[in-house]
């Protein structure tokens, strides 16, 4: 049994026993590869009345490797309009990338994202939304995110500066 299965079994048992924090609901956990949870931001925020769904995908090395987490974008759910959330549902949050810790869990990720939304003052997309979305990998874990201070910018898949040097001809 993969460590991820064991861990997720226990996380699931905890959720079933203790429930989830307010505003977070387990939508489905039919296997140990993909889970869905809904997130609502409570109180007086720009997302009042909206409900989002998070999709978790786990590989066999979870929790050592971070889960792939993104907002569901389908007929029912939309990605929140947020400076760190792309319209395809991808989320630029350091804890899902370089700052992931194996001590974190599905529920703690949900709580983190909930509070990320709660602290948002202005609904807007990341400045590079269109560019990113147009060529984003299907799995957000495949994106190499740069977390520069508070500027979350996906690094382009291949950043290459190409310059050409030529020699000026001259008549002798």
């Amino acid at each position: 049994m993969a460590v991820s299965t064991r861990r997720l079994q226990k996380e699931l048992a905890d959720i079933k026993r203790d429930g989830t924090p307010v505003g977070i609901t387990l939508l489905s956990a039919e296997d140990f590869a993909t889970w869905y949870l809904s997130v609502e931001v409570l109180g007086n925020t720009v997302y009042e009345g909206e409900k989002f769904a998070l999709k978790f995908r786990f590989d066999g090395q979870y929790p050592i490797s971070a889960p792939a987490v993104q907002f569901v974008v389908d007929d029912t759910y939309q990605a929140p309009v947020h400076p760190h959330v792309y319209s395809n549902g991808h989320i630029c949050a350091s804890i899902l990338g370089s700052e992931w810790s194996p001590v974190l869990s599905v529920v703690s990720v949900c709580v983190t994202i909930q509070s990320m939304l709660a602290s948002c003052k202005k609904k807007e997309r990341p400045p590079d939304n269109d560019r990113y979305v147009s060529h984003a990998p299907e799995n957000p874990k495949k994106t190499r995110w740069d977390f520069h201070d508070d500027k979350y910018v996906p690094s382009s898949p291949r950043r290459s500066t190409v310059s050409v040097l030529t020699i000026s001809r001259r008549s002798v």
Binding site: S160, T161, S163, I167, R169, R170
Partner: peptide, 19 residues
């Protein structure tokens, strides 16, 4: 020779600098 000079094929090195 002058002409040929002018006509020379030039190779330029293009530096691809990644990242």
């Amino acid at each position: 020779a002058e002409e040929s000079t002018a006509l020379s094929t030039a190779l330029a090195a293009l530096s691809v600098s990644e990242a």
